[in-house]
């Protein structure tokens, strides 16, 4: 195995958040968490290291799931395996656990972090659609004028393009937060890929809504791998909001999916196949909710 010769001049593995933020304050640090995206991307030459390699796995307070209050908080270094095993999340936000369940292999899940999944900003990132339907926001922290500053960005405004987010090079994603879903909230996630393990989603769909009297309210629908970023499917949402959940509404939502999904042909699937799958998944998640 050839080790790529890189110009990393400093390696840091701080224990305190302040130290981590200071180490990236000039924007010249590459953040390392699980490495499951960083390693292949740098080995292949798709990405270059910056001068400083900043391992955030030792930073205290960056991991863990706080699910007691009205706001649920998942630390950036929390692994997909931890999300999958979380009894609290299984009760509060089973849609996230379901997405973790269908994520790669156990070896990858043990290393892959939530923060890394979002910061990698793949249109196929599997944590994004469920978090979008949960109305999640990310916390971004940086060091400025001798102090730590944190801002919150709604996840739907976070992604800009493949591999691109609004996060600045000096900012660390510290946590993902979302309001505890109200009683009556239901959510579903579907993803498909060429093989059961290790699938990079060909297409994924998540639905979240409040169900009352056979009608859907506060509908959020999110899709992965159908555009340059994970996105909210506004046309599908409009076709569902406030409507009785009957066959006509499902048909309208399936038709609207074509307006939201603008997939491309790539090595994993054709645009035609993706458009078709999105419709199938929209129908499946709605039928599933109807069956409840």
């Amino acid at each position: 195995m050839s080790e790529t010769i890189e110009a990393i001049t400093t390696y840091l593995a701080p224990r305190r958040l302040d130290e981590a933020l200071q180490a990236m304050a000039d924007g010249e640090a590459t953040v390392l968490c699980g490495g499951t995206d960083l390693a292949p991307q740098t080995e292949s030459g798709a990405r270059q290291y910056k001068a400083r390699l900043l391992n955030i796995n030792r930073v205290e307070g960056l991991g863990g799931i706080a699910a007691d209050g009205g706001e649920i908080r998942i630390g950036a270094t929390t692994t997909v395996a931890e999300i999958r095993r979380s009894a609290a999340l299984a009760k509060i936000a089973p849609v996230l656990v379901e997405a973790a369940e269908h994520f790669a292999s156990e070896q990858i899940r043990n290393a892959a972090s939530l923060g890394g999944n979002l910061c990698n900003a793949s249109p196929a990132g599997d944590m994004s659609p469920p978090l979008l339907v949960l109305g999640a926001a990310v916390e971004l922290a940086c060091w400025r004028d001798g102090a730590a500053h944190t801002r919150r960005v709604p996840l739907e405004q976070f992604f800009v393009g493949p591999g691109k987010t609004v996060k600045l090079a000096q900012e660390l994603l510290t946590a993902v937060v979302f309001a505890r879903p109200a009683p009556g909230f239901v959510a579903r996630f579907r993803k498909s890929g060429p093989r059961p393990a290790l699938e990079i989603s060909t297409v994924s769909v998540a639905l979240g809504a409040r169900v009352a009297d056979g009608r859907l309210g506060d509908v959020r629908v999110a899709m992965g791998s159908v555009a340059p970023t994970p996105l909210r499917a506004r046309h599908v949402e409009a076709a569902l909001e406030g409507r009785p959940l009957d066959a006509a509404t499902v048909a309208a939502a399936v038709a609207a999916a074509a307006e939201d999904a603008k997939p491309i042909d790539d090595v994993r699937a054709s645009a035609w196949y993706r458009s078709h799958l999105v419709k199938v998944f929209v129908e499946e998640v709605l039928d599933d909710v109807r069956g409840n």
Binding site: G35, N110, L198
Partner: peptide
């Protein structure tokens, strides 16, 4: 494979299995 796809490089770290081809030695 060197890319996390095959598991031939599986080791245990603090009781959990990972692909050692992706894990940074410094960690």
């Amino acid at each position: 494979c060197g890319e996390g796809e095959c598991g031939a490089c599986t080791i245990e770290i603090d009781g959990k299995t990972v692909n050692s081809c992706l894990m940074y030695a410094v960690d």
